[in-house]
Structures are given as structure tokens and as C-alpha cells.
Write a protein that binds this DNA or RNA. Structure first.
Lengths: 275, 275
DNA sequence: AGGACTATTCCATTGCTGTGAAATAAACGC
DNA sequence: GCGTTTATTTCACAGCAATGGAATAGTCCT
């Protein structure tokens, strides 16, 4: 709600539990409808046709077509392929302007590059959007066979070390709920999906300021993460090293210390940590 | 318009030349008003109070307050300070989703990191938003005294080497217009501001696939840029090395060649260049 | 203290806007 | 060929959203 965290939406998890509330008002304002459309595209992560969007969000065809035309004219949406539409460039501009104003992110990004250089591996800054973890920034490690992903990538919270940290500060109930509703099996089928176990790991990881995940999302790919917490102890983001499985096994402490030092530096630079 | 470029808005430059058109319709739709608000914040690059926004965009107070409340409730806006509002986190999410879908940007980002490692200096990817240059991505160089800026930074087109490249493909008239309306004196008072000269430099720089700027924006800071052009020859973005003045003077060709190689690699990877 | 803004809220009015339904094709599936 | 689904446009209508105006404090000058 009023949490000044970077990403937490705290929607009641837009899952299957569609609220059958709001009985009055068959009609929704333009802004509302527009946001429904943007959200639909955002959550499904792929282009849709106007027709399909109308069906999916349960809006009248005429309204949907009109608003989509409007949004396209304003560059909030763009055409992809023949009939499909997708989020537009203007949203990116707005987003950059927002990110630009976050001294938090620029600070963290700086430390991310330093850490990347220090350990010679890919480093990421991740945040949370509701029940997903989002890659906010990334520094590619050197070498031709580095492990990498992309800015904007969104994965379930239970797939990554960062995902667990990001909910560690939430209340027991909320944490359990998030995992219950969003925990998914990963491609490797090695991700933990038990909500109770996850909730426990999550809390403990935040306390340790360290979370390690091995090959839960992709084979041979691991992740060593440390939380960036504000003064209230809320995990606003994480900084993590992404690297091949065998390296973590061999030099677990080396990476763990490095990433913890980096996250502390960010917190200190922001005045979120006293020393 | 239908240009698939990443950033070009091609608005008629929202400058002082306020179009006294659209006489009918004292009333503007909700989406319209909402976007006016977002745009106002975006273009002024700072938080405003609801009252001030209403005055600035010429909207009724009641409407403005209502819509701003609405947008805040939806995380499209956030509170900054006591009364002021600013762009919200949700816009960043949408923006990331858009960026994530751009294979262009991820491709360019990869090359950006490579180049950063090769030359050991800060490297940026820049695009254009109307009459401004925008920093889309950045890789910090090593060292404690590196030159750096921030993602999302927006500066007039005439201040940077990249800015000139980004309009090099436009028609003579359009280019002249853009420079005429947006060319501003830089802090160092060394930026070129003559539209005709700028337009010429711009075209030539794009032809050379190289643009060099020395201390025009900041003292001792220079920039070596090369364009990333799509198959139509439109400069969609630039990749540039940011570094201290003296280094450019000493090793101009070294940096020029490196940055040109990088931009060509991006174009080739995207199939925008034949070999 | 008084004037001039800033900041916010309330309300009656009205005309724009979202709706629903229907018309029209094109694209499938078979 | 013929139903079914997708895709798009058109239109009259009613309701609510945006509006203008005013009321109410708070704040900043001087």
C-alpha cells in the first residue's frame, strides 16, 4: 500500500480468485478499461488481438476497439504483427523517467557493476511485482559462455534465491498466501513448491542476508543473492550473482561474502543502514 | 508515425508553439487528461502538486484532483514529499515489459557490455524521444573516477554526439525544425546551437557512422558515438563511449573504430545489415 | 491583519462516452 | 459448400464522468 518499496504491488494476487465483488456499475471508466488492457498484456506477456483482449477482460467490443485505437494513437500500445497489439514505447519512457528518479536504483546499479567486475560473473538487481520476481537491471559477466537473462524477465517467486528474499519481510500469512497462489514448478522440476517450506526458507534467508539456489530454474545455473532492505527492514530489491552450478559448490563462501558486502554497501550509501 | 523505431515520437515538438486549434470540445476524455498529467510530469522531469498540474495543463481543478487520486490508487503515480506527485512504479513495470520484448535492445545491450569491457570506459545506448536524447542503457566503466550518467537521462539533441546521429536520417526540413526548436546552450556554453550547422553535422555524422563531441555538455567529458540503423537506414539508437576529453584527443581512432565495430555487430545480429 | 495565492473538497449540471446489439466479412474447420 | 469463430465497424441511447463554480482553509507575503 503505502510501502515505498520499489515494486511491491500488493494486489490481492491477480490469480484465478476473481473477486465477484463490485456488483453495481456494469460500466467502467475509460482509464479503468485502458488499464485493464495494459494489465492484461503485461500479465500475459505476449501480444493479443483487440478482439481477444475484449473477450479476455470481458469488455464490450466497441469500447475495446475504440480504446485500443486511442492508446495506439498515443503510443501506449503498438502493433505487433498484423492484428496484434503490444505495450508501446511511451510506457518505456515513462518507466525510465520513474527509474531515473529512484536514487535507489542508480545506487544499486553502480554496486552491481562493481560486483560484476569483482567476481567476473553476471550480476542482477531484482525486485518484486506482486507474485513475480522481476529483473530490474543486469551486468553481463565476461566470457563467451556466461549465464545471462534479460531485463524485465519475470519469474515465479519460488524459482529463485532472490524471489525468496523479496518476501522475507512480509507477515507470515501474506508470505504463505503469495507462495500458495503463485508457486509453480520450474522447467527443471527442482524448484521447491511447498508454501510452508518456502515461507520458512524465505524468512531465514532474509535473516541470513543470503539466499542460494542451485539449478532450480535452469540446469547448471545457480544464483547467490543478498537483500537490499530499507530502514523498515523491508526487502526492496536484491542483488545477486548468476553463475554455473559448479562454481557455487566450490566457492560458496567467496560469492556469498562478495554479494553480502555489495548489498550492505548499497544500504549504507542510501542511509538505510547506520554505520 | 508508423516508423518501427524504438523511440521516435515525432510529435510536432511540444514547444511554445501551442496549437490554438481544436476549438470544439471544452471537455477532454479521462484518458486524455490522464496522459496530459503523465506527460506533464515526464516532460518537466520533477514532481508537482495536483494544484500546480491543473494550472499547468489548463484542466479543471476538480477533474485533476479526481484523476490524480485515481492514478495514485493505481500506482501510475506516487506521492513524493507531502503534496507532490510523481510518476509511479507501475509505469516502470509496463516499460520493462516493453523493453523486454525488444530484441533490439537486448542485442544492443549485450554489445554494450562487450564494448565496455574492451575499451574499459563507460558505454551507453541512447535513443530519441521527440526533441530529446534519452539514455536507454548503460555499462559503467571501471575505476573510481569514471565518467557516468544515469539511465533515463534526457538532454537536448544538440548537446551530444548521439543526439546528432539520432536525427541524421530525417528529412532536411524535419531535422532543421527539431534543432531550431530544441537546440539549447549547454552548461559549458560550448555546444553548437546553430540549426543549419547542426543539421549538416548530423547528416554527415550519420554518413560517417561516427560522431564525436568534446566537452560540449560537461567540462572534460567527451563522447564517441556510432549509429544503430534499421534496414531503412533510420537511426534507431546509438552506442557511445563516454570518456575524459584527453583520451579522445590521444586515441581518437582507437575509440572510433571500436564503437563503429560494435554498432555494426548489433545491426548484423538483427539482420539489419547484409554481410 | 489583510490580500493574494495555494490547496482541497463539494455539488448540480450536461453532454460526451461506454454500452449493447446488430450488421458484415474474412478466416477456419470439415 | 456451410456452420462457427474471429475480426471490425456502425449506431442510438442512457448514465456517469468531467466540468465550472463556489466554499473553505492554509500559507506566504508585507
Amino acid at each position: 500500500m503505502s510501502t515505498p518499496s520499489v515494486l511491491s504491488d500488493d494486489d490481492p494476487v491477480p490469480g484465478t480468485a476473481a473477486a465477484s465483488e463490485t456488483p453495481r456499475r456494469t460500466r467502467v471508466s475509460g482509464i479503468d478499461r485502458a488499464l485493464q488492457i495494459l494489465d492484461h498484456l503485461y500479465h500475459t506477456e505476449k501480444p493479443w488481438t483487440a478482439y481477444a483482449i475484449a473477450k479476455a477482460i470481458g469488455a464490450p467490443l466497441s469500447t475495446t476497439y475504440a480504446i485500443i485505437d486511442d492508446l495506439i494513437a498515443r503510443d501506449l500500445l503498438t502493433h505487433r504483427g498484423d492484428k496484434e497489439v503490444w505495450l508501446g514505447p511511451r510506457l518505456y519512457h515513462y518507466g525510465l523517467a520513474y527509474a531515473h528518479s529512484l536514487d535507489f536504483l542508480s545506487r544499486a546499479t553502480h554496486e552491481m557493476h562493481e560486483l560484476c567486475r569483482e567476481v567476473g560473473e553476471t550480476v542482477q538487481i531484482c525486485g518484486r511485482d506482486g507474485d513475480r520476481m522481476v529483473v530490474l537491471a543486469m551486468a553481463d559477466g565476461p566470457g563467451h559462455f556466461r549465464v545471462t537473462s534479460e531485463i524485465g524477465t519475470r519469474v515465479p517467486l519460488n524459482w529463485t534465491a532472490s524471489g525468496r528474499l523479496l518476501v522475507g519481510h512480509l507477515g507470515e500469512d501474506e508470505r504463505l498466501n503469495l507462495f500458495r497462489q503463485s508457486a509453480k514448478m520450474s522447467p527443471t522440476e527442482r524448484a521447491e513448491t511447498d508454501p510452508v517450506l518456502l515461507a520458512g526458507l524465505s524468512r531465514q534467508a532474509l535473516k541470513d542476508r543470503l539466499s542460494i539456489q542451485i539449478s532450480e530454474t535452469d540446469f547448471l545455473v545457480s544464483c547467490v543473492a543478498s537483500p537490499i532492505c530499507n530502514r523498515l527492514g523491508e526487502c526492496v530489491a536484491t542483488i545477486s550473482i548468476v553463475l554455473p552450478e559448479h562454481k557455487v559448490v566450490e566457492k560458496r563462501d567467496y560469492y556469498g561474502d562478495a554479494v553480502r558486502r555489495a548489498s550492505e554497501k548499497v544500504e549504507r550509501a542510501l542511509g538505510w543502514r547506520d554505520p
